[in-house]
């Protein structure tokens, strides 16, 4: 596909700015959500049979605990994704501000992924015409 230099510059700037913004928001939010995971959620759902014993060992310490936050985050946002673990009600034990942060975190993360990955692939394969 062919693009003019101006269009290429504009699209490249959009992709870069989205990537920077995504990184600057998703990474800190991920850390905050991990360190501030409500104790009630951990006490009630971060145990067997919802998680296997080796998973509990692995995800108890940083940085693997980030994956635990990811699991709780996705289940809170889309409960129907949980077909096996049985933790889809964990959002009931979360305060509103925590749910709001999870919503923002996942939304920004997904948008960043959707815009930057195809954007980079597309821009890497275009031909610039003057």
């Amino acid at each position: 596909m062919e693009l003019s230099q101006e269009t290429f510059d504009f699209l490249a700037s959009c992709v870069f700015i989205t990537a920077f913004f995504g990184f600057l928001t998703v990474a800190p939010l991920w850390l905050i959500l991990t360190f501030l995971t409500p104790k009630k959620v951990l006490e009630n759902y971060f145990k067997e049979p919802y998680f296997q014993s080796n998973e509990i060992d692995l995800m108890s310490s940083f940085p693997i605990s980030l994956l635990r936050t990811g699991i709780f985050g996705w289940v809170t946002l889309i409960p129907s994704l949980d077909t096996k673990r049985g933790i889809r009600d964990c959002h009931k034990l979360m305060p509103k501000w925590y749910k709001l942060l999870i919503f923002l975190w996942c939304l920004i993360g997904i948008l960043t992924f959707i815009i930057t990955v195809p954007g980079l692939i597309f821009l890497s394969n275009v031909t610039i015409v003057n």
Partner: peptide, 21 residues
């Protein structure tokens, strides 16, 4: 560095979805 890190983080976020099931 910044775009690489960004994609690393958001890919990680998307991939954690796999762990639910």
């Amino acid at each position: 560095t910044a775009v690489g890190s960004s994609i690393g983080v958001v890919s990680g976020l998307v991939l954690t979805g796999v762990l639910i099931a």
